[in-house]
């Protein structure tokens, strides 16, 4: 019958309209909070929460409360907020050489200080121009000492392009929440999530932290002791 195809199509759109389990919209960054969400957010028992916050309970039933939530992201996400560990970085500039766009600028100490084995250069400049960065992650792949890691954010907007350059002070100050990208040692850590936890420099690398004894054996000649 002519026109049957149209009705068949319309029945499918109707099905998608009515069936609730077919909704795919993700509420971000704010989500209307149910009473369960609120209790979970404050890490409290549901009943305890209702007793303590009767006002919020009523409000949430009326749909007046919203909570902020993460966009659903995988920990491997390559985002901005590079995590850079001063303690690990030797200033080798592999990352700068490997960047396809050449947007990493590294200047090490120029005083001509006599560096000994085991020491690392002082980094004076470490600029990443994330206004031009494409978050390919090749710099992270190239870093031989696991000093540079990708972050997970994507919401950094600025009024001026200059503010998009992350310099060494900014890199030192940011919270260190490295992404799992190209860092299997972080992915294999059971309870580490780049959205909540910070990692210290000594547990982020692919190598074990040397014990005090190892260091002593390596750097201090026993016959002098």
């Amino acid at each position: 019958m002519y026109g049957l195809g149209l009705f068949k199509g319309l029945s499918i759109t109707l099905k998608n309209l009515i069936l609730v389990n077919r909704t795919n919209t993700i509420q971000y960054p704010d989500k209307k909070a149910s009473i369960l969400d609120l209790a979970k957010n404050e890490k409290k028992n549901l009943i305890l929460y209702i007793i303590k916050n009767p006002l919020n309970t009523v409000k949430s039933f009326l749909g007046l409360i919203s909570i902020t939530q993460h966009a659903p992201q995988h920990p491997r996400f390559r985002g901005e907020e590079f995590s850079w560990y001063e303690e690990r970085c030797t200033g080798c500039a592999s990352c700068a050489k490997y960047c396809p766009l050449g947007i990493i600028k590294i200047v090490t100490d120029q005083t001509g200080k006599n560096y000994q084995e085991g020491q690392s250069y002082d980094i004076e400049t470490f600029d990443i121009d994330i206004g031009r960065c494409m978050f390919c992650g090749l710099c992270v792949e190239a870093c031989p000492y696991d000093a540079l890691h990708m972050g997970s954010g994507f919401e950094e907007s600025q009024y001026q392009r200059d503010n998009l350059v992350i310099n060494v002070e900014k890199l030192k100050k940011t919270e260190k929440k490295p992404s799992h990208w190209f860092r299997p040692q972080l992915a294999s850590k059971k309870d580490y999530s780049p959205f909540d936890d910070e990692v210290k420099w000594d547990s982020v690398g692919r190598h074990q932290k040397p014990t005090q004894k190892d260091l002593k054996n390596k750097w201090i000649r026993s016959d002098i002791e």
Binding site: H74, F77, E141, H180
Partner: peptide, 20 residues
């Protein structure tokens, strides 16, 4: 995104395999 951390500009493969 699970595989390579990006959704459009993937850069997933490398000569000699995939990155990870």
């Amino acid at each position: 995104e699970i595989l390579c951390g990006a959704r459009i500009t993937l850069s997933y493969m490398r000569p000699g395999g995939i990155f990870q």
